[in-house]
């Protein structure tokens, strides 16, 4: 740990960038998996089949989960520590703070990464408790798991997302995630030293859009479920 603290600020940012990009890729996979909610009959069959398919990897799945947890942990701890250093680097604050405009990439999103990050972290804990460790319903499909019972996550989802407060909570959290990704996506490349006049312009200009698309993609499910119920 001592070694970690003494790693230079530049390396810390590189760690944040690598874990960030990895988590970003995980989100994309997660989002693609979510599409199964809308397919299959009866509703939820494909989704539950997909969840069962993942679980069927057994120990490998657990390792993947732990790995993911590790990436989250590293991302969060490094970022929080860096943020602590950053806070100390300006002991007396400005009375007025503003945006220079022009070539600046400073936005409300970029200056609130730690806030959006912490909220998203809290959201993730909730999300995991809600579903991964939530009530265990079972169901049976003839075509899944050879007709043996599988976990009925779809039912859990339907129950949870029928609750207005849950849907509102998701909406807020995912909006903040979109801001987090908006700055985080292009910024990861910059942190890794990948800069090109065109490349940076393109990644920067699509970054916030990408964040928005991903968040909306996730948000579709609670809204859809809430709507059909």
């Amino acid at each position: 740990m001592a070694n970690f603290i003494t790693v230079s600020s530049v390396l810390k940012k590189i760690i944040i960038a690598i874990t960030g990009i990895s988590l970003f890729l995980f989100l994309i996979v997660h989002l693609l998996g979510n599409i199964t909610i809308f397919t299959g009959s009866p509703p939820g069959r494909d989704f539950n089949a997909y969840a069962h398919f993942l679980e069927s990897f057994g120990i490998l799945f657990t390792i993947a989960e732990l790995g993911l947890l590790g990436f989250f942990g590293l991302h969060i701890i490094t970022a929080l520590y860096t943020n602590f250093i950053n806070y100390k680097s300006r002991e007396s604050r400005y009375a007025v703070s503003n945006f220079a405009g022009g070539k600046s990439k400073k936005t409300y999103a970029s200056t609130s990464m730690v806030i959006t990050g912490v909220v998203v972290m809290a959201f993730l804990i909730w999300h995991v408790l809600q579903f991964r460790f939530g009530p265990y319903y079972e169901t049976i499909y003839a075509s899944v798991n050879g007709g043996e019972p599988v976990r009925d996550l779809y039912r859990l989802i339907t129950e949870e997302f029928s609750n207005l407060w849950v849907v509102l909570g998701y909406t807020v959290s995912l909006s903040l995630l979109s801001l987090h990704l908006g700055h985080g996506f292009w910024s990861s490349f910059q942190s890794l030293g990948i800069y090109g006049k065109t490349f940076t312009r393109v990644t920067y200009s699509m970054s916030y859009l990408l964040g928005l698309i991903i968040s909306l993609g996730f948000l579709v499910i609670p809204l859809y479920i809430f709507w059909i119920n």
């Binding site: 600020s9 100390k88 680097s89 220079a100 990439k105 990464m113």
Partner: peptide, 22 residues
């Protein structure tokens, strides 16, 4: 130089790009 920059108490760059603008 990077180590010295940290030792002097400056913060870490998180790509706000405000520096280039000013």
């Amino acid at each position: 130089m990077v180590d010295k920059m940290d030792d002097e108490g400056f913060g870490a760059c998180s790509n706000h790009g405000e520096c280039e603008a000013v």
